[in-house]
Design a protein around this nucleic acid. Structure first.
Lengths: 352, 352
DNA sequence: CCCGGTCGTCGAAGCGCTTCGACAATCGGA
DNA sequence: TCCGATTGTCGAAGCGCTTCGACGACCGGG
């Protein structure tokens, strides 16, 4: 038997080693660790001392086998490089950090494994629950998530959210808020420079919802709103912008949703003879960090990646604890006014 | 006992269920799955059929307990948002994809857990091996990695690599190549717009090595090289650049290492009366994607994040298989010439 | 025709942990 | 003073898998 074959160590110590060293039963050590039964102060301390002394760490596999809990969650990320990278990163960061606070680890799964990846990690009990980012309106994984034995939380909003748990920024109101703000400054004609058209085609919720919000607010405020997709890359942005302003020279305000486009937009406008904010006001939907590093600093509705991540993990933990949670959690957008929209619209200044 | 308590399923089927269904021993099923012993064609097929029919997936925890292999590797990422985000992302992507090819999953660990995080995942046998990114010259985790029971691979080069396994781009030669290229175009005074100074202070290898390569090549080619750190954000870049060109108007070429600075640099130069590449040539050390989306398209030495990731995983897998691997693997930089350095240096054109 | 080897399969012994039921000891209330 | 709770601890039964040794069946060579 194992106690007989040579030195007890060089190998990692097991719970049995700890029990022996502390002069208690294995189960007692387990209860000290889990706190699931009362243990006297003195015993607890003796056990803890042994644990520290031996450098004991419970074996994750054994634990997961016996307790049917792996203490790991899966995070499914869209790792097609390029799209909204910083937001994804911030989000992942928040997820890992929050998960650790709940004593869980995070398994990274890429979107391109598709439903199969989900099934695999769930069915092998590698993870206790799943966080899925970058959910599309009509996502192939959604039906799977519904029938999966393990709880899940989605970042983003599929077309039908019944039976699911979703968290996201309220992009509709974000779009709405941008236009409302611009309308308040007297702009009568605004344009939404949206996500790349592939993103709309893919049926990505946030892009559609933002656009809807923009259109809605425009109607409500009697503003004219153009919406157009916007590809990535300085050249593409410049082209789109030049074309837009030639066709519609009276556009006096832009809502930029594509964070990759923010820099190029600000770089291009002056070369087209429009200064920001004097001639054209700009509002962005992008991380605060971007907005603050831009020049001029941008009025923006930040995507609260961190808060979304934290919320998502918290919700998942509650589901793991069999609590009921709301199906949809939409975070309120907050518009922060900065230098790019500090003056009224040109038209509003005409009379002066 | 478990077979007696109600239906055999609703729960995930176990290997015992498969064995029963196929009319073989549990061990036979195991051997079919692992291929570690010969199994007759007919038996194998019968077992595989049962597996498919029952929807069996082996329990990861049980497997890891019995086999002492979790089939998971840890990926330690610097998730302090901001720094080189796209590269990190690309890298993570490649790691996950490659790991999957070796039938492994990836556990995401953040740098800010420090050595404790490493110790935890290694000691609990959550992972079989560790990939550490963003290694600093004098990294606190390095000694730990040396004594850890599990194999590891570092992305980046610490001051002392003995006893470790490291993969990285050869940044020294990358810096060297940039300057050599510029020298070849006749530039006599170049400047390296490096990483933020915090990165140098932290002792991050790649920044120091690039700088060293730049200095070296400059000396070798009789070129004057200024090197200065460069903070993030359009404003900071503009300030640094303006200052630089005022102080040293004869600088005719820039090497930009900070990928976040690439956009702002290109946006700023024209406003300072310097056109690219006519007045100032620009070479970047940044992902190809960035270089191609810039305007003008940038001559660049790409950071081959994908290749590094793939290599790192492959090396780790070989170590897991007890193969010996080289301590240091430096990838050869490849400089791609694009529009930002197509003409000779202004000085070299003087005579015309 | 016999014997040493393969081949294919089985049974059983763990792997290291959690958790349940049992039980002695102690406590407080009537 | 006695009894039912409560508290603290223990032993043992798994959790689902891998792996080792055993063993019958079958093979080919001398």
């Amino acid at each position: 038997m194992s106690a007989a074959r040579g030195r007890p160590s060089a190998e990692q110590p097991t719970i049995a080693d700890v029990a022996r060293h502390a002069g208690v039963a294995v189960s007692t050590v387990s209860y000290v660790l889990s706190g699931k039964r009362a243990i006297s102060e003195v015993t607890r301390n003796r056990v803890l001392a042994s644990i520290r002394l031996l450098g004991y760490h419970p074996h994750a596999g054994a634990r997961s086998l016996a307790s049917r809990r792996a203490n790991v969650i899966a995070l499914v990320l869209p790792l097609r490089a390029g799209m909204q990278v910083p937001v994804v990163m911030q989000f992942a960061m928040a997820v890992v950090t929050t998960a650790r606070r709940f004593d869980h680890d995070v398994l990274l799964v890429t979107s391109d494994e598709g439903p199969a990846g989900l099934r695999r990690v769930a069915a092998t009990a590698l993870v206790d629950g799943v966080l899925v980012m970058d959910v599309e309106l009509d996502d192939a994984r959604v039906p799977l998530l519904r029938e999966l034995a393990r709880p899940s939380v989605l970042i983003g909003l599929p077309a039908d959210a019944t039976g699911l748990t979703c968290v996201d920024l309220d992009f509709r109101r974000a779009g709405w808020a941008c236009v409302a703000h611009l309308a308040g400054l007297g702009h009568r004609r605004v344009a939404l420079l949206g996500a790349p058209s592939a993103v709309y085609d893919r049926g990505t919720g946030f892009a559609h919802r933002t656009r809807a919000g923009v259109v809605e607010a425009a109607a409500e405020h009697g503003v004219d709103a153009l919406t157009l997709p916007c590809e990535e890359g300085a050249v593409a942005v410049r082209a789109a912008l030049t074309d837009l302003l030639e066709r519609h020279p009276d556009v006096s305000a832009l809502v930029v949703q594509n964070e990759a486009a923010v820099g190029p937009v600000l770089a291009t406008l002056p070369t087209l003879g429009r200064r920001v904010p004097r001639d054209v006001s700009v509002v962005a939907v992008c991380p605060d960090q971007f907005a603050e590093q831009a020049s001029p600093m941008l009025t923006a509705v930040p995507v609260p990646a961190e808060e979304i991540g934290t919320q998502a993990v918290s919700l998942l933990m509650r589901k793991l604890g069999d609590e009921a949670v709301p199906e949809v959690t939409l975070l309120e957008p907050r518009l922060t006014v900065r230098d790019s929209t500090t003056v009224p619209a040109p038209a509003a200044r005409v009379g002066r």
